[in-house]
């Protein structure tokens, strides 16, 4: 009986010690994060890629409309060609927000490569035949605005095995801004982010 009590107490003590040793969760200071780099993509990489793309786009003059008004931009396909499960909106949303702030562009959510981002623009128009709705408040035909420009791109990953057993991972953020009328790319940009680390690290 004494032995059982001893074993139980030892187990409890060990469990208590292990709990004490567990790392404390802490919130990242997103404004001044000096945390170690990871082999995969993290928010700092998306911030850098988005910031470089926006600066390059604004400097290029591709978004300066002669009459001072804004271009209507549609988001086309942005392919994730990496081994990671990332949502390309992590990059595109930052660019959209900043372009909207610039006053140069307004983004349509009624048209995109994957269908309407916000289906409500079309769904609300189905109320035209519905007597329950005041038809004066239903949108008239021909009011949606078609896009002038399209933003498309790709995020690419390339893994390189190094001689010393470590690995190098290169990420390419490639974006194009196309004028829909002519199909010509008015702006193109590429940001490369490279990381080097243990060959045992899994970058996906």
């Amino acid at each position: 009986m004494k032995n059982i009590t001893k074993i139980t107490l030892s187990a409890l003590l060990a469990a208590g010690l292990m709990t004490g040793c567990a790392d404390k969760t802490e919130r990242i200071d997103m404004h001044n994060d000096k945390g170690d780099q990871v082999m995969g993509l993290d928010y700092r990489d998306f911030d850098q890629a988005a910031s470089e793309a926006i600066q390059s786009m604004l400097k290029s003059g591709a978004l300066d409309k002669k009459d001072g008004s804004r271009y209507v931009l549609a988001i086309s396909r942005v392919t994730n060609d990496t081994m990671q499960h990332i949502d390309t909106d992590q990059l595109i949303k930052k660019i959209r927000v900043e372009l909207l702030r610039s006053g140069k562009v307004v983004v349509t959510t009624a048209v995109s490569a994957n269908g309407a981002e916000d289906k409500m623009s079309m769904d609300a128009r189905k109320l035209r035949e519905n007597d329950e709705f005041n038809q004066n408040t239903v949108q008239k035909k021909g009011t949606l605005v078609a896009p002038d420009m399209s933003l498309s791109g790709k995020i690419l990953q390339r893994n390189v095995a190094m001689d010393d057993g470590r690995q190098q991972v290169e990420y390419y953020f490639m974006l194009s801004l196309t004028e829909i009328k002519t199909g010509l790319a008015w702006w193109e940009g590429e940001t490369v982010i490279g990381k080097r680390g243990s060959g045992k690290s899994v970058s996906w």
């Binding site: 404004h31 910031s51 900043e98």
Partner: peptide, 11 residues
Amino acid sequence: KLDAIGEKWME
């Protein structure tokens, strides 16, 4: 002050 992505540290 205006909001902008450039407020974050860039290398």
